[in-house]
Amino acid sequence: MHFDWAFFWRYLFEPSSIYLHGLWLTLSISVICQLAGTIIGLFAALGRLSSFRSLQLLVRFYTWVMRGTPLLVQVVFIYTALAAANIFRFQDIDLGFMVLPGNIQAGIIALSLNEGAYMAEIIRAAITSIDTGQVEASKSLGMRYHLFMRRIILPQAARFVIPPLGNEFNSMLKNTTLLSVIGVPELLLATQMVTSATFKVFELYTVVALYYLSLTTLWGLIQRRIEMRFSEPHLRPQLSEQPSGWRRLFSAAR
């Protein structure tokens, strides 16, 4: 086997613009979809926990479909299948400073909707894990639903949401590769384009794997910071004595 080290190093440290653009797409799409998915998930969770039967059923149907079908199928369905059936065709949108292509819009919608379903379950579990006494105490002080949710329940639930949210974002970074099938030139498609020109498949896929690994590693460090911020307030100073970020990165246990 011949491994072209020179080529490998060059692509690792001096990526071509197509690569950098792919990296930018991967990152920005991940962040946007995670944010959108979290917001969708929050409202879906509140809907699922509401006393309105129809709202509960709607949310259950949504999570059932989104978690029960492959993400890849959802991506293709929203972009290609809807267009093929003449139901909806994503058009490029001119945002002034950039043009947002239709396939990226479809990709963002698919990933966000899918993520929303998983986040809904995570947030619902976090809310239900808060002692009912918290709601009763809030009510007894004359607080109404929106007030005690915002000020009492959700801030406490956030602590239980943050660790799984970190895992979700880790998955999200990798799930963006699925958008390559609808022609979004993110990191994987960028790699494919370069390999088809250079035939250095082994070297380039090693490079792209290392790129994803760096992204998820970097995220692991950021996640640790965030978790520290949301830990129990009176325990915060002691957290520095916990396993270092380095050790934590390589431990599968959370």
Binding site: Q134, E136, A137, S140
Partner: peptide
């Protein structure tokens, strides 16, 4: 309505067996 119940509860203090302080 929730609004009216909440308004009346403002006048009624309650202390619980399990305290139910807001831990955060």
């Amino acid at each position: 309505r929730e609004r009216n119940i909440a308004r009346q509860r403002q006048e009624i203090g309650m202390v619980f067996q399990r305290f139910n302080l807001f831990p955060h």
